[in-house]
Amino acid sequence: MSHTTARSIVQRYHRAWTSNDIDTAMDCVADDIVCRAPGIDLHGKEQYREFIGGFAPALTGIGDIAEYVDGDRVALFYYPQTAATDTAPAAEHFTVRDGLISESVLVFDRMAFGPPE
């Protein structure tokens, strides 16, 4: 069995969802994931799938990714690019347990991703 790091799991997840490959992204997520995002707390893989799957098709690209790794915790900082914005930053903090993402805290400006006026 190969040694899989928290960093490699989060990178696989991030590459998948930002490419609109939600099935592969969900392969990296625990069934009982808890996610805190602006305006909503998500509990379980199905709620998380709906949330990520609802946003992924709007992506037109991803800009400048930075990361921080501390054991089973990984933080990513990046710019999700959509028709509405390419300058609004996002940050995610993941906890990986037993080879799957079990917790996520997602921070972004919801207003920046609304329809352009």
Rank of each mutant, 00 (worst) to 15 (best):
M1I: 06
S2A: 12
T5V: 05
T5C: 05
R7C: 02
V10W: 06
Q11H: 11
R12G: 03
H14M: 09
R15M: 13
T18W: 05
S19I: 02
N20I: 01
D21S: 10
I22G: 10
D23M: 02
D23T: 13
D23P: 01
T24P: 03
A25K: 07
D27A: 15
C28Y: 04
C28V: 06
D31M: 10
I33H: 08
V34P: 01
C35D: 02
C35T: 07
R36I: 13
A37W: 03
P38L: 06
P38W: 02
G39F: 08
G39I: 07
G39E: 04
G39Y: 05
D41L: 03
D41S: 09
H43G: 00
G44Q: 01
G44W: 00
K45E: 01
E46G: 00
Q47M: 10
Y48W: 11
R49I: 04
F51K: 09
F55C: 08
A56R: 04
A56G: 05
A56E: 03
P57L: 07
A58E: 12
L59R: 01
L59H: 01
L59W: 02
T60Q: 14
I62F: 04
I62M: 13
I62A: 06
G63E: 04
G63R: 13
G63I: 07
I65N: 07
E67T: 11
E67Y: 13
Y68I: 15
Y68M: 13
V69Q: 09
V69T: 14
V69W: 06
D70T: 12
D70F: 10
G71L: 12
V74H: 08
L76A: 04
L76P: 01
Y78V: 09
Y78S: 08
Y78A: 12
T82P: 07
T85I: 05
T85E: 09
T87P: 00
T87I: 13
P89A: 06
A91C: 15
A91W: 00
F94S: 03
V96P: 07
V96T: 08
D98N: 15
G99H: 09
G99A: 10
L100A: 14
L100R: 14
I101V: 04
I101G: 00
E103H: 13
E103Q: 13
S104M: 15
V105D: 07
L106N: 09
L106P: 00
V107Q: 09
F108A: 01
R110C: 10
M111R: 15
A112F: 07
F113D: 12
G114M: 14
G114H: 11
G114V: 09
P115Q: 15
P115G: 15
P115C: 02
